[in-house]
């Protein structure tokens, strides 16, 4: 079943531990000390924005009617017929940035290095999203709504 992130804004310190954990999780080496050497190539899928004195982590919200999928003109994005979450086949992405332009949350970013879109995949190959583990105040919840 599809899971989504919920954030407890009052708990978020804006420490960006989630951003670092995300960047490391999606680095080539997969660990912090070696990932530092890949600095130019690191691209977190989550970003913490400050607004009106509070902090808001932003990443893919797994919309029920994903605009990015309608906009994708290369077949890289699709809705999983069973789970209903957004699937991303990176090998089909051509870097046209239609999904970046369509995302109502600004949660999809262009990666200039790979010329492909980067977006939260909820750390699909790991037991749970690494941002969740990294958050020192447990401001990030991962729930099946």
């Amino acid at each position: 079943m599809k899971k989504k992130f919920v954030y407890k804004v009052d708990k978020c310190l804006g420490c960006k531990s989630c951003e670092i954990a995300c960047a490391v999780a999606h680095s080539t080496s997969g660990d912090l000390f070696n990932a530092v050497n890949e600095f130019d190539a690191l691209s977190p899928r989550k970003k913490v924005y400050a607004s009106s004195g509070k902090n808001y982590p932003v990443s893919c919200k797994q919309c029920d009617e994903p605009q990015c999928v309608s906009a994708c003109m290369s077949g890289a994005l699709a809705v999983d017929p069973k789970e209903k979450n957004v699937l991303y086949d990176e090998t089909r992405c051509v870097g046209c940035w239609m999904c970046v332009m369509a995302c109502p949350y600004g949660a999809i970013k262009p990666d200039k290095k790979s010329k492909k879109t980067v977006r939260c995949d909820q750390c699909k190959d790991k037991d749970e999203p690494q941002c969740l583990k990294a958050c020192p105040t447990k401001a990030i919840l991962w729930t099946s709504s």
């Binding site: 605009q67 940035w97 970046v100 332009m101 369509a102 995302c103 109502p104 949350y105 600004g106 949660a107 999809i108 970013k109 262009p110």
Partner: peptide, 10 residues
């Protein structure tokens, strides 16, 4: 710099 363009679309 196009990262925030989706918000403008909205």
């Amino acid at each position: 710099a196009i990262g925030s363009s989706g918000i403008f679309t909205r």
